[in-house]
Structures are given as C-alpha cells and as structure tokens.
Amino acid sequence: MAEESNKALLLSVDCPSARLPDHLLIEIFIRVPMVEWGHLACVNKYWADLFRQDCLWHAALIRCFPMAGHSERWPGPIPRGMSKRRFIALCMSKCIFPLGDELSEIVGHSYLFLKEQLEISTLPPSPVILHGTIIDQFIACGKSRDRAHELASVIWLAVIDNLEENHQTFHLLKRLALEGDVFLPYPYSRSFKVEWKILDRLFTDFRDCLADADYYDLLACAKQKFQPIPPTWLGY
C-alpha cells in the first residue's frame, strides 16, 4: 500500500521514471555502478523501497554473479541469508579473496559472520567458538580440514585488518592477544599469522590507547610467541 502511494505521488508531479514498471527500473538500477546505488536509493521513497526488496537484489545477484544461482545446497552452521546478504558476501569475497570459484560465497559469508560477531557491542562469543564455526562451515561444504584451516586463517586476517579503529576494537584485540594459547586442537587452532596481526595492530594502530601495564603485559605475550620483536612494537 505504501509503495502504491509513493508511486502515485511521483505520477502526480509528472515524473517520467515513475511510469516505468518495477522490473524495468530494477534492470536499469543494476546496470548502474554499485557505488551509485546509495545515491539512487535517496532520490525518492519509492526507489528506496525498491532497494529494500529481495527482487532487486536477486536480479543484481544473477547479473553480477551468474554462477550464484547454480549453488543451491548450503549446509553448515553459518546462515546463507536472502539475496541481499548473498550479494554482499560475494562482493566482499571478490574484493578481499579473489578466488573465482564456488568457494567465494562460503568465504564471503564466513567473513560477514566473523566480522558481525566480533563487532557485537556486548561481549562477543569466544574466539575459539567462532573459529571452530568457520572451520565447520568449510568442512560441511566439502572442503578438506587443511583447506578449511587455511581459509579460516585468511578470513581472520581480513576481518582484523578491516575492523574500525575505535574503543571497542581496541578492547577486542587486547582480549584476543591476552587470551594466550586457549585454542582448540588442530585444525581449529589459529595460525601465528593471525596472532601476529592482532599484536601488530595493537602496537601500531592502538599504541596511544595502551596504558603502561597493558603495554608490558602485551609485550610479554609477544615475546613468548615471536622472536625477534619488530622495532615498531618496541616504540622505535
């Protein structure tokens, strides 16, 4: 009802685009570069409503990722979601992990899952549980344990790299760094590359947030795991 009233309002002001049927508008929108979609959705309420509908995102999914329509089976603990989430997952995978095969969507959804869980305003779930969930997702989709372990580490690295520099991220990274070796056995254990990235962000991006006690505690953790310690971590 709201959509009809919005369109009627456009027709009343003699807007030519309002006379186009929805399916033609959608075909036009999905051919516009994605960076402009936000501007299109702000033109009027009717166009904004179209960008909230699954039909537009389904059309965009099929146009931008033609092979996405062929993968119907989706086992595992991480939800796949509707067309909009699938589209975002595939875009993230394309930008960060240019794999170019059926693995892309699994990687994209795993990335979104981990990032959303780590950014929960209250205490996020245990990193061990999150990491195990990602590993289980890849195994459920037919990947080997070694491959699942490798991809989970890549996803952790990408998520940590893309966390915003804010107070919440600082406390999250500090928690991850100080939790020690409380990891599940192989293949669930996180790689040293992930632990290195966590400490690197703390000692570079968040150095000004560290109190003296925090700094020396984190430095002790770093020295237990890595030698030599990079000079930037030591403040010079």
Rank of each mutant, 00 (worst) to 15 (best):
A2T: 10
I106V: 10
R145F: 11
H109K: 14
G108S: 12
E179H: 04
L199Y: 14
K7F: 08
G38Q: 08
R19L: 12
I62P: 00
G132Q: 15
R86I: 11
Y111F: 15
P231V: 03
I139T: 11
L199C: 13
L20S: 14
A89L: 04
R85M: 05
I30G: 03
S83E: 07
P124D: 04
A59S: 11
R31G: 00
F226M: 06
F113H: 08
K143R: 15
G142W: 13
N44I: 01
I30C: 02
I134C: 04
V32F: 01
L40P: 00
F138V: 03
E164N: 07
Y111I: 01
N162A: 04
A41I: 06
K223R: 14
E36V: 05
Y216Q: 13
S121Q: 07
D200F: 06
L24S: 07
Y236A: 11
H39G: 11
I155N: 00
G76N: 11
I78N: 02
L114K: 00
T133P: 01
I96F: 08
H167F: 02
R147K: 15
L184V: 02
Y236C: 11
L199I: 13
C95A: 15
C209R: 14
E179Q: 13
H58S: 08
L10E: 09
D49G: 10
C42H: 12
I135D: 02
S121V: 06
P187D: 07
A41L: 04
D146L: 15
L61R: 04
A2M: 08
